[in-house]
Write a protein that binds this DNA or RNA. Sequence first.
DNA 1: TCATATTGACAGGATGGTCTGTCAGATACT
DNA 2: AGTATCTGACAGACCATCCTGTCAATATGA
Lengths: 217, 217
Amino acid sequence: MAAPATRKYGGLSASQRQSSRRTRLVEAGLDVLGARGLSNMTMTAVCARAGLTERYFYESFRSLDELLVAMFDAFSVPTHEAIDAALKQAPADLFERCRAAAGALIDSLTDDPRKARAYVEAISSTPLHERRAATMRAYAEVLAEQMRLLSGLEADHYRAPLRLITTMLVGGLAEAVSEWLNGMLKLSKDEVADEASRLCVAAAEALSRSKTTSTAS
Amino acid sequence: MAAPATRKYGGLSASQRQSSRRTRLVEAGLDVLGARGLSNMTMTAVCARAGLTERYFYESFRSLDELLVAMFDAFSVPTHEAIDAALKQAPADLFERCRAAAGALIDSLTDDPRKARAYVEAISSTPLHERRAATMRAYAEVLAEQMRLLSGLEADHYRAPLRLITTMLVGGLAEAVSEWLNGMLKLSKDEVADEASRLCVAAAEALSRSKTTSTAS
DNA sequence: TCATATTGACAGGATGGTCTGTCAGATACT
DNA sequence: AGTATCTGACAGACCATCCTGTCAATATGA
């Protein structure tokens, strides 16, 4: 009985239309999450906001959690790219590189007010919490890499402590940004990035000092 | 019509019985949260676990969120007390005091396996997230106090940066403990506490160095 | 032993959200 | 224009949970 059909519509192919709907749902999700909070973010509300029927929800996502993950990626991926780009341009100095990365992170997170709200609210979702943990681990690894390269922490016995320290620094920055977004920290963007980067440098120095017995290679 | 009645039952007064039920609900909440996760923690499940009818749930709590907050307090209060006690005994040295506090925190969190699970899961709840934020602020303030006293950071212009740094350190420790509980960090309890405390000392030193121009009092 | 408080069990309505199905109207290909 | 596809609107079944009410069984004090 002929091909399973796939016709142009509104000048768009079937897959274009589908991915456009998906995008609309993700955007609507950000709107709803920002405006009404996570507990009021239901499929019904998201679909209404997107101007789509619930039927189309299942076309792109199997559950709200899947949408949540897609929303997270929608702003965590660009953020990650911004950080990568900033790092590529920064000079080979630990403080400068931390500054560049932290600045890129904060800028990326604050360029869309919805992101800020989502970033804070998002933690209150179990699947997102896991996603967030994975992202944090990745950032911690990037930071560890920088420290290894720029502070001579190559030795193997640094691995575990370095991992702990970078986890703390990255987690700490996340917490600080969260507090800053809530208006609890009376500092400018730049000051936040500055202080955080200084702490990274101090941490690297402390680490290289603490095991000084076997580092004079 | 006599008095509104209040009779002993099982050797307990009315208020004793009520508070006992409340305790049972909190305990059951910890069990359910630990065993089945936050999304499966419903009133029905908690009541079943507690061996109480849903009617009694409303006697002590108006909503699941209220129970969640009570559960949080049930282990955050003892933890806070443990930290206070540890700080009282510790010598007047920043590293030692950080070590004592961090050790007390970790010990308190790991003495009951349910706490650990709850600590990780708990973040995925909006009301708890706020509670957590308040607790973190309190811990950050305690740490800031220690730094001020023991590292000569009394000057007023330290306030904002110090607050940022302590927020990062406390938030970082929380993240690290969370990762450690997940088995992502191959370190012993003591090593975690040691490294974290060392980072606190390094942070204090960096802070006092960075504004050295006006500190030579 | 009797009366009354207290309890646990259960029933069931109310609510809110998830899904699936139908259908008329709009759009595009021939 | 005619036909087939695609779309959005709606209806409503289904389900889980919340929450309240009733009631018999039990424990207590008099």
